[in-house]
Amino acid sequence: LRLEVKLGQGCFGEVWMGTWNGTTRVAIKTLKPGTMSPEAFLQEAQVMKKLRHEKLVQLYAVVSEEPIYIVTEYMSKGSLLDFLKGETGKYLRLPQLVDMAAQIASGMAYVERMNYVHRDLRAANILVGENLVCKVADFGLARLIEDNEYTARQGAKFPIKWTAPEAALYGRFTIKSDVWSFGILLTELTTKGRVPYPGMVNREVLDQVERGYRMPCPPECPESLHDLMCQCWRKEPEERPTFEYLQAFL
């Protein structure tokens, strides 16, 4: 395994491009020591290896001592969030954005069929390849993070704006909380990567959403798509659509 080009840095580690087995181009995620327990990670990795779908980033291998390494397929255009905010983002029109959403829903419909939960679905965790191919990455890892700023769910590192209220408040993460996050991801797509709930801080978002506030229809977004977002944001988790439905609708 060779680490060649550093692609990015996040709160919990770095991402590199490299070569595996001398020939395969891969992405390598390294986790800061202390982010998660190697034992817990190894268990999760076994499950992650079983998830194989064309719209999920394929896991190739893991190094399960500290520092933990995760070796996955390489996606040339990086994260969907950076892609939307970058040069190419300007030229993306609604049909392409909807197609990308459908690809993500397709990957998540598979996660749904496998009775698995992602827990951290957002544009930053979707990767883009050639020809606007989108794949879901980092599934299941969020559960293992041991950082206090994260586990408190009120901490600075927790993605509260993407998280369903029952998950943020009571830790009830299910495929239905993933559906909520998918609704937020749809706003990221239609606004080219704007942060959700602009002008609001995490605490406010939690309070307002509890009181029934939902983001309005983004500019140039059809009402039918906003309606779909609002279905994803129904207060009762069981009233939210399935990913199978979302995939078919898109």
Rank of each mutant, 00 (worst) to 15 (best):
V71I: 08
E236M: 14
K135Y: 09
K55G: 09
P196D: 01
Y60I: 15
E210C: 09
T242P: 15
V15G: 04
T30N: 08
C230Q: 11
E236R: 11
V63Y: 09
R93S: 07
E54R: 15
M36L: 03
P237F: 14
E244R: 07
G171Q: 06
M75W: 00
R93K: 09
L31R: 15
T163E: 01
E238N: 10
E44D: 00
Y116A: 13
A45G: 12
P159N: 03
V62I: 04
S64K: 04
L141Y: 04
G86D: 05
K32Q: 06
M108C: 13
L59Y: 02
D82R: 06
R93N: 07
L185H: 05
K6M: 14
E66R: 15
V195P: 13
T30H: 12
V47C: 09
Q154G: 07
N202I: 07
K6G: 15
R211Q: 09
V117R: 00
E44H: 03
A27F: 01
Q231T: 12
M17Y: 14
T191D: 07
F173E: 00
L144H: 11
R153Q: 07
C134K: 01
E66T: 15
N115F: 11
L94D: 05
R172A: 06
F83I: 08
L185S: 04
D99S: 15
V209E: 03
S177Y: 03
S76C: 12
S181C: 06
E210D: 08
E112V: 15
N21T: 13
A27E: 01
S79G: 04
S79H: 04
P67R: 05
L51W: 00
R119Q: 01
V5E: 13
W16R: 15
T35E: 09
L56E: 00
A152L: 04
S64A: 04
P237M: 13
G199Y: 14
Q103P: 03
G107Q: 03
F249C: 06
W180E: 03
G8V: 00
L92T: 11
V111H: 06
K176W: 09
L31I: 03
P222S: 07
F83Y: 09
Q9V: 05
W162H: 04
E112P: 05
K135L: 10
P38G: 09
Q208I: 15
C232R: 03
G212F: 05
M75G: 05
W162G: 01
P165S: 11
W20C: 15
Q154C: 12
L250T: 07
F243Q: 05
Q154V: 13
V201G: 15
G140K: 00
K135P: 02
D99V: 15
P216K: 09
G10F: 01
V209R: 03
F12R: 01
L51K: 00
N202K: 07
K135D: 03
K176S: 14
V201L: 08
K50W: 05
A45N: 02
V26N: 06
Q9R: 06
L186I: 10
T151C: 08
W16T: 15
R203Q: 11
E87H: 13
T190Q: 05
P159S: 03
R153T: 09
D82L: 07
E238Q: 14
T163Y: 01
Q43R: 09
E188T: 02
N21M: 11
A164T: 03
P95H: 06
Q46K: 06
K6S: 13
Y197L: 01
V201S: 15
K176A: 14
V195G: 14
T174K: 14
E54K: 15
T242G: 14
Y245V: 12
T35L: 04
A109T: 15
T187S: 07
R194G: 09
P241Y: 04
L1T: 13
Q103M: 08
M215G: 02
Q9C: 09
Q231C: 12
L246Q: 07
M114I: 04
Y213A: 06
T187K: 04
V195R: 12
T163Q: 01
G78C: 08
L42E: 04
F158S: 01
Q103H: 10
V26Y: 08
R2V: 09
G22R: 11
T35Y: 11
R119S: 02
Y116M: 09
T19S: 09
M100F: 10
V71G: 03
T187Q: 09
H118M: 02
F158N: 03
M215E: 09
D147V: 06
Q154K: 06
E210F: 09
G155M: 03
V201C: 13
I104E: 00
L31V: 04
A102W: 11
E54V: 11
F139N: 00
D82Q: 09
A164G: 13
P33Y: 15
T163I: 02
N21H: 13
V111L: 04
C11D: 02
P95M: 07
L186D: 00
D99P: 15
E66I: 15
G140P: 01
H226R: 11
N148G: 15
Q247T: 11
R240W: 03
L92A: 12
T19V: 13
M114P: 01
G10P: 00
D178Y: 02
N202Y: 04
E239F: 15
M229V: 09
C230S: 10
Q46S: 10
L31W: 00
